Simulated assay, not measured.
Amino acid sequence: MASSDARRHDLDALRVGAFLLLILYHLGMFYVPWGWHVKSAHIIPELEPLMGLLNPWRLSLLFVISGAATRFMMEKVSPGPLARQRSQRLLVPLLFGMLVVVAPQSWAEVVEKNGYAGGFLDFWPRYLSFDQSFGIILPTYNHLWFVAYLWLYTMAALAAAPLLGLADRWAGRFLTGPGLFVLPALAFGLFRATAGRAWGETHIIWADGYAHLQYGASFIIGLLLARQDRAWDLLQRVRARTALAAAAFAATGIALALLWNVENLPGWPGAAFAFLREAYAWAVMCALFGYARRYIRRGSPLLTTLNEAVFPFYIVHQTAIVLAGHLLTPRGLPAAAEAAAILAATVASCVGTYALARAVPALRLPLGLKPLPRAPRTAPAAAE
Rank of each mutant, 00 (worst) to 15 (best):
D229L: 10
L158A: 06
W36A: 15
P56T: 06
L90T: 00
H326Y: 15
D12E: 01
S129G: 09
Y127C: 06
F120K: 02
A187T: 03
N307E: 08
P49Q: 10
L27A: 03
E46W: 11
P301D: 03
L61A: 09
M155Q: 13
V110W: 04
F181A: 14
P361N: 03
H9L: 01
H26E: 11
R173D: 04
G179E: 05
N114T: 10
L365Q: 06
V347I: 15
L213H: 02
R84D: 00
H212T: 05
L54C: 11
T194C: 07
L21I: 08
D122T: 15
H143Q: 15
R8V: 04
A345Y: 09
G177E: 14
W36I: 11
V102N: 08
S66F: 03
A383V: 15
T346V: 03
F273W: 14
L356Q: 04
Q88G: 12
L235D: 08
A18D: 06
V77P: 06
P266K: 03
G28K: 01
D131G: 01
L323D: 06
T242R: 10
G97I: 01
A211F: 07
F30Q: 12
D208Q: 11
T319Y: 03
D131I: 00
A195D: 08
G179R: 10
G325F: 09
T305M: 15
L50H: 09
V110T: 04
M29H: 09
P380D: 02
D233T: 08
G52R: 14
A257N: 15
P380I: 06
F313R: 10
L288I: 01
A292F: 00
P162W: 00
G80A: 13
L152T: 09
F130A: 10
I205F: 15
I137V: 12
A13W: 02
S129L: 11
A292L: 01
T378M: 12
V16D: 01
P330K: 05
H37M: 14
V110F: 07
N307Y: 13
A357D: 00
L186W: 03
Y31H: 14
Q228L: 10
W124Y: 03
I220G: 09
P361C: 04
L11Y: 13
L164S: 12
V310H: 04
M51V: 09
L21A: 13
L343F: 12
R8Y: 07
A211R: 13
V360S: 10
G17H: 01
L258V: 11
D10N: 06
S129N: 07
A382P: 12
D5I: 12
G196Q: 07
I205T: 12
R84G: 12
G80K: 12
A69T: 09
L302V: 13
L223Y: 03
R358Y: 02
R331G: 11
Q88Y: 02
A187D: 01
W268M: 14
T154Y: 05
A248M: 00
A207W: 12
L164R: 14
P56I: 04
P184H: 07
G28P: 02
G35V: 11
D12L: 01
A69E: 05
T154N: 02
